[in-house]
């Protein structure tokens, strides 16, 4: 119990003192995972929409691949991204291994199937005749897509939350492709792993609490957006 209490106290001390290192780590976590989420939302929802709304041979196979991707182990993604960005690898010339950019790429790869899979389910869950109804109201294709997204806004926001939740809490890929370099590519999760390894439990607790609070506040914001304008 003492350990936990000490951790909570340390966490508030670090926050209260605006410890520049901790603030830097927190800010980087938010920035990296936020960007990765944005990328995954753009790709996941648009591709998910195409998959959900069109008919093509092998659709079931594509959907099951996407659904499998929702459970993609971060270390596997980390391994592949590392190999691709390795000096001799196909994208080695970019020279971005062990940078925050590499973490963004790896996290986007993890989050995209999550967002896409939930988006497909969300859009397929709408009544099949709804599209015909929207077209018969005189909508253009673009207006139809807009209305469908609005109709599926609750599960689509859930997709965004799941994507963000998946990457902000992920550690394997971040360590592998980011390298946990102090003041450069260290994020909350990688720092927690390191501090725990060193036996600095109080600091590790502090970082964990900050991570939890961060996840809570971001999801609270998303939830506010999700639940607004619901008529009674």
């Amino acid at each position: 119990m003492d350990l936990i209490l000490e951790g909570i106290v340390t966490a508030f001390q670090l926050l209260w003192a605006l410890d520049p290192e901790v603030l830097g780590i927190t800010w980087l976590s938010l920035k990296v995972s936020g960007l990765a989420t944005i990328i995954s939302v753009v790709i996941g929802i648009s591709v998910g929409m195409i998959v959900a709304l069109t008919r093509f041979p092998g659709k079931k196979f594509v959907v099951s691949v996407v659904n499998t991707g929702m459970g993609l182990p971060p270390v596997v993604v980390g391994l592949f991204v590392t190999v691709f960005l390795w000096r001799n690898g196909p994208f080695g010339f970019l020279d971005i291994l062990y940078t925050p950019t590499a973490i963004i790429i790896a996290q986007a790869v993890i989050a995209t199937p999550i967002v896409m899979g939930i988006s497909i389910a969300a859009l397929q869950n709408l009544p099949s005749k709804l599209r015909l109804q929207i077209l018969s109201l005189g909508a253009t294709r673009l207006q139809m897509v807009g209305i469908l997204v609005r109709e599926a806004r609750l599960p689509l926001m859930a997709a965004v939350m799941a994507g963000f939740g998946g990457v902000i809490s992920e550690v394997g890929a971040s360590i592998m492709v980011g390298g946990n370099i102090k003041g450069y590519s260290r994020v909350l999760t990688t720092a927690t792993v390191m501090e725990t390894g060193k036996g600095e439990f109080a600091v590790a607790f502090a970082l964990s609490i900050i991570l939890l609070m961060l996840v809570f506040f971001v999801n609270y914001l998303f939830t506010l957006i999700q639940q607004r304008e619901r008529p009674r």
Binding site: K129, I147, E229
Partner: peptide, 18 residues
């Protein structure tokens, strides 16, 4: 043509709003 006609289905197919 679709802007000159309109259709009501068996299910009301209303949007999730007022």
């Amino acid at each position: 043509y679709r802007r000159k006609v309109s259709m009501v289905f068996q299910e009301p197919l209303l949007f999730d709003t007022t």
